[in-house]
Each structure stands twice: as C-alpha cells, then as structure tokens.
C-alpha cells in the first residue's frame, strides 16, 4: 500500500439483498487532490462514499483512507475524515455556532480550541452574522455551508462531499464551488460525488465515472473528452424538407452517427479533425442547395462522454426519464 494515496480502494463490493449496488470499485486518490465521482442516480456513488466513511460495511474488497483500513479500524478512519452527506446534517434547533461547537466536542477537541476553530470557520464560510441564529431559519445554501464547516472542524485529511450542490439555487451553487476550490489550497483531499457534469468538469482534477456499480471511465475531463473522439459539430438548416439533401452533403465530414433534433433541421455529429471545417461544411451544403441557418464546432462535453459510455444521457437520468 502506498502512503501517498489518501483514498485507496480495491474491488469494493456492496450488496443489498439481490441487488449489487457497488460491484468492484477501485479508487486511488492522491493526497491533496480533488476527485470527482460522477454518475447518475443509483449508480453506486453514495454507497461507495458510505463504505469509505465507515457508515456501511463492504461485502468485498478493501479500502484504506489516509492509510487506515476502513474495516479493521473504523474509529481511526473517523478521526481523519469529514463527511457532508446529501441531506444537510445539521441540528436545526441549535444555532450555527452551537452546531460547530457540538461537533468539536464530539471530536474531543479542547473547549477553547473548539471555540476558536468554530469562529474561524464561521468567518470563512460567511456565517458570522447568522452564527447565533437557530439553523431552522437558514437558507438551503447557508445550511450546506454550515454542514461543510462542521465537517472541517477537526481539520480532516480527507473530506467526502456527497452531492454538495444538489437542491441549491444557481447562485448558492456557484458560491459553493468557490468554497470547494479553496479547499484545494488547504491541501485537503476531497472526494466529491455529483451527477452534474459541469460540476465535475469545473472542480475535479480527475473524474471517475461510475455506472451500475462499476467504474466505466477514469481520467481528467480532457482525457475523457479525447477518449470519445474529436470535436462535435451542430448544424441548423432552414427547411426540414431539405434534410435528405443536407445529410448527404454532411456525410463526408461525419466521423460517427448524426443525431437529429425533434425539429428535424438541427444535426449534431462528431467530425474528423481538420482545418476550416465550418466554411467547408457551409460550402458543401450551399452547393447542395440547402439553406443553412447556423453552424458551430465545439469541444465534446462530459455529457457527450456520458452518452457515449453509457448509451444514455446523464441529464435524462436525473430528470427521471426512462431511456
């Protein structure tokens, strides 16, 4: 076992009855890194985090957090981790400050240290004004900030953030992203689970894509995007009736299947790399007598990665649409 890994999991398995929720997950997160665990609802992200944070006993495999075996010494693991779950784990009937000091006491920190650390974190997470108000009146974003502040009280070496922005409004979400990025400067290792591709793209140095309990891809956002081929092109024509002509004209540029939107006149397809694709495509369509409204080339997004890897869109999954 190498000690430069903050999280080292091999072949983790968790079954619930007949369902295999996690089916042999490997994870290797170096110290100080922010890793994203990306997958749709029910992919096994939370179950993996619950095993790594000693809340669930693995049915197979081994995991070390900060060098400690989670199965052999769960108590030791608990002294080194912070966990922020999907549901804000705060005591609503106490004030923000009382919540902080409550957790400090349970970490067996000396009283004065617990107090000082609470003040420090309340300041950092912009909760000073609300510190002596009961949490019940906090907004969703404030609760989530308090939740993370509570997880940081004992300076954990590994912080687990399970869907930290689910249910937040866009502004709170941006603020939360800023806070998570700051954690990197502290040298805290962060394992972040998310079903939002933009979140993983922005925050995580490396992304582990998980689906049906297994890791299906692993790499930086750019590596994942490269893995599925080159750039993507979107072309929109004026008249849906000219679709056959357009498809014929586009064929030489396509490196894969053409995806047609419901409007019947917007096409998405991967392109072969090459210079001056846009003018060439427009010229080809023009020569075929097709009226072009718009044409653009873009880098693949993680959504394209997801679609390619799993055959369905991550967005579909969390909207609850059966594919």
């Amino acid at each position: 076992m190498s000690s430069d890994l903050a999280i080292d999991a091999r072949g983790l398995v968790k079954r619930f009855g007949d369902t295999v929720a996690v089916d042999g997950v490997d994870l290797a997160v170096p110290r100080g890194a922010i890793y994203g665990l990306l997958g749709p609802n029910g992919a096994g992200k939370t179950t993996t985090v619950r095993m790594l944070t000693t809340l669930l006993r693995p049915d197979g495999g081994q995991a070390f957090v900060d060098g400690i075996d989670v199965a052999a010494d769960p108590h030791g693991v608990r002294t080194r981790i912070g966990l922020t779950g999907q549901y804000a784990a705060v005591e609503e009937r106490l004030t923000g400050r009382e919540n902080m000091e409550f957790v400090a006491r349970l970490f067996h920190m000396p009283k004065s240290e617990g107090r000082a650390r609470s003040v420090e974190l309340l300041e950092r997470f912009d909760l000073v004004d609300a510190a002596d108000r009961v949490v019940k009146g906090y907004s969703g974003g404030m609760r989530r900030r308090l939740d993370i502040a509570m997880s940081l009280i004992a300076r954990p070496s590994v912080l687990f953030l399970d869907e930290p922005t689910t249910g937040l409004d866009p502004r709170s979400r941006l603020a939360m992203w800023g806070l998570i990025e700051e954690l990197e400067h502290d040298g805290t290792t962060v394992l972040l689970t998310t079903q939002y591709l933009d979140e993983a793209d922005r925050l995580a140095q490396r992304i582990v894509v998980i689906d049906h309990g297994t890791v299906i891809a692993n790499g930086t956002a750019d590596e994942l995007k490269d893995q599925i081929g080159g750039d993507r092109m979107t072309v929109q024509i004026r008249h849906p009736e000219s679709r056959p002509l357009a498809l014929e004209a586009l064929a030489p540029f396509c490196a894969g299947e053409v995806d047609v939107d419901l409007d019947g006149r917007t096409f998405h397809f991967p392109i072969r790399s090459g210079d001056r694709v846009v003018p060439n495509v427009i010229r080809a369509l023009d020569d075929a007598g097709v009226d072009v409204l718009d044409a653009e080339v873009r880098r693949p997004t993680l959504d394209d990665v997801f679609l390619t890897l799993t055959g369905r869109s991550a967005a579909d999954e969390h909207e609850g649409v059966a594919s």
Partner: peptide, 11 residues
C-alpha cells in the same frame, strides 16, 4: 441527516 454525521464521528 444528522445521525449519519454522528456515525461518521470518532464518538
């Protein structure tokens, strides 16, 4: 969610 936090603490 609080009980999950308590379970993850060294208490």
């Amino acid at each position: 969610g609080l009980v999950d936090r308590l379970r993850s603490l060294p208490m």
